[in-house]
Design a protein around this nucleic acid. Structure first.
Lengths: 115, 115
DNA sequence: ACTTACAGTAAGTCATGGCTAACGCAGTCA
DNA sequence: TGACTGCGTTAGCCATGACTTACTGTAAGT
């Protein structure tokens, strides 16, 4: 259940361009909030809020280091999203075959409609 | 280019709950617009708009069948999203190791990344 | 203890986009 | 050919959320 929720929230989290930029920077190296904000066109509180969303989606984790908080990617959230896509992909492939069998078995592609 | 764009737009497309519901129904079986709308709490035009977003994201394809349009999942868009996640996951794993070496080599043995 | 630096929270503004209602268009059947 | 059906499009309303400024809290250095 936690996996499914993470996957779902993960899509919303990565839908925002700023959060994707943060995500990509963190994939290269862990970083603190101020450090991330200096390389982005938004304010530090904005970065802080985005990191909160990413953390709740299970995509990043937080480590306190003095007054700083070092953020890094959480492979669990990424894995949950991969699993979600894989599951639907597999289901879709089966549906493709079944649909193709019923629809194109004898003749016309795209013209026949058998309810 | 199409792949990268598809992956990026795919996250925004799947961020919406209604679009995820449409996506999941299409993974089970291809369907027309009205058929999808009857099983959802939104109007038919809303479903039509969502399908347009999903199509532009490369997640679904369209087949004309008389007055109907049969929609089904497009494995290419799903694959693009998987690839995007895989690439960042791999980069992140490398960053984890490098960061762990520098940061926790002598202080926090219990916090080291398992697996 | 005081100061400085770093980060999260609160309040408010504004843009994005999801939704419905109304309309137009194409294909099917009598 | 005329009426009906199934979809897509447009316009407009409204909710969500992304952003900034100002404030508070906490840890480290002097």
């Amino acid at each position: 259940m936690a996996n499914a929720v993470s996957a779902i929230e993960g899509f919303a989290a990565l839908a925002d361009p700023t959060r994707r930029a943060i995500f990509e920077r963190l994939s290269e190296r862990p970083a603190a909030v101020g450090e991330l904000a200096r390389g982005l066109p938004v304010s530090r509180p904005a970065v802080s809020q985005h990191l909160r969303v990413l953390k709740e989606a299970g995509l990043v984790t937080e480590i306190a280091a003095g007054t700083r908080r070092i953020y890094r990617l959480d492979p669990r959230g990424i894995g949950a999203m991969r699993d979600w896509l894989d599951a639907h992909w597999a289901t879709a492939l089966d549906a493709f075959r079944e649909f193709a069998d019923r629809e194109f078995d004898s003749s016309q592609p795209a013209k026949r409609k058998r309810k």
